[in-house]
Amino acid sequence: MTLSISEIILITVILLLGIGFYGLLAVRNLIKVIVSLQIMVKGMMLGFVLAGRLAGNVSLGQSLAILVIVVDTIVAIIGLALAVQIRRYAGSLDVKALTTLKR
């Protein structure tokens, strides 16, 4: 069985989304939570390239992917900065330590 390029990309996108979402639910370290989010967004970047290919507008799809990279980097930086502050003032990077607001 041979797969076309589009199908290979599609499978990769779905795998990345699935791995990222599983990580978001299962992982307990705050840094790894951000990494899981990043994996999901990486899947979507590939998704934009694929969508551009399917829609016959490759350049638009790729330029959108670059814009996603820019926006997503800012989100990741803020998330990591918050994780650093949490480590400093709450003393732990474990998600289970962040339950003071749960009631």
Partner: peptide
């Protein structure tokens, strides 16, 4: 710590939503 916790929770849920 409480406001950092709220901020992180908000960021993760909102970023997952934006995916």
């Amino acid at each position: 710590p409480a406001s950092l916790e709220a901020g992180f929770k908000y960021l993760v849920q909102s970023a997952a939503g934006s995916v």
